[in-house]
């Protein structure tokens, strides 16, 4: 497995898209930190970017990588390797390379800027952690979609639709249901609904670490009570991990059944 991760990773590290992705975050990091006088504001803007972009990039790269490495995959399939090794290895290769682009792309400006206050470091690390989680989740989802769809265009379409669903449509439906069921107690509903979508969950995790937590508390203390405690943080991280684990398990399962 490690060999596959290594080769997929090397392959990606040489592709120009990885550099573009890395350079994008590097630029973004420098621009935000050095043109903004407040670090916490930079963190908020970064959050907006990470919440939207890492899932999208993870999805697109995931699908593209899978389809582009089809022949390579067939080459590997004829080698004495387990199928799950091949696919999970390629998955990790991609997810790790995207995560590193993110972590270094944003980390380098941050180190250069030299904001080493503990609270800022913590916020920033959480941001990166969430970005890494989102990359892993969406690459896994994209792999699943690509594995189930031989037709590239269809696979690509479904993947984009999946992203759109989780990033936009889900929130739209969430918002509308909150407004429609205005008269009912909505605390638990909104807590659960936001836990189920990895993008929403990541967003709220970061929001609560920024000073906006009180704003969320404004609607009822449930959110703050839940996410404010270590139980809340731990269960959020568990939910995010499950979003990684289940798609990977499905990759393993699907790859065993698939004909090439």
């Amino acid at each position: 497995m490690f060999k596959i991760i290594k080769y997929s990773f090397y392959d990606l590290m040489r592709s120009r898209w990885s550099y573009i992705y890395f350079a994008f975050y590097l630029l973004l990091g420098f621009v935000l930190l050095f043109l903004n006088n407040s670090v916490s504001k930079a963190v908020i803007t970064l959050m907006n970017v990470i919440i939207v972009l890492t899932p999208l990039i993870g999805t697109i790269f995931g699908v593209m990588f899978y389809y582009n490495s089809r022949e390579f995959t067939e080459l590997l399939l004829a080698q004495p390797l387990k199928r799950s090794t091949i696919f999970v290895g390629q998955y990790f290769g991609l997810a790790i390379s995207l995560s590193l682009s993110l972590a270094f792309g944003l980390g380098i400006p941050f180190i250069v800027y030299g904001a080493f206050e503990s609270s800022v470091i913590w916020n920033f690390s959480l941001l990166i952690l969430v970005g890494v989680f989102l990359s892993f989740i969406f690459v896994a989802l994209a792999f699943n979609i690509a594995l189930s769809n031989e037709n590239r265009i269809k696979g690509f379409g479904i993947a984009i639709l999946m992203w759109l669903l989780l990033a936009v449509i889900y929130d739209g439906a969430f918002l509308i249901s909150l407004m429609v069921f205005d008269d009912y107690p909505l605390d638990k509903f909104s807590l659960i609904t936001s836990m189920l979508n990895p993008i929403d969950l990541s967003r709220i995790l970061i929001l609560l670490k920024l000073d906006i937590s009180a704003l969320l508390g404004y609607t009822g203390a449930v959110f703050q009570q839940f996410f404010g405690t270590s139980l809340g943080i731990i269960s959020s991280l568990i939910v995010l991990s499950l979003w990684v684990v289940f798609p990977i398990l499905r990759i393993v399962y699907k790859s065993k059944k698939k004909d090439f």
């Binding site: 090397y10 392959d11 592709s15 089809r70 022949e71 080459l75 004829a78 390797l81």
Partner: peptide, 18 residues
């Protein structure tokens, strides 16, 4: 068992960056 087999695929398409 694939240690005992070698296979030459029909379409030779390899990872381009290598």
């Amino acid at each position: 068992y694939r240690n005992k087999i070698t296979y030459l695929p029909q379409i030779a398409n390899f990872p381009g960056n290598l």
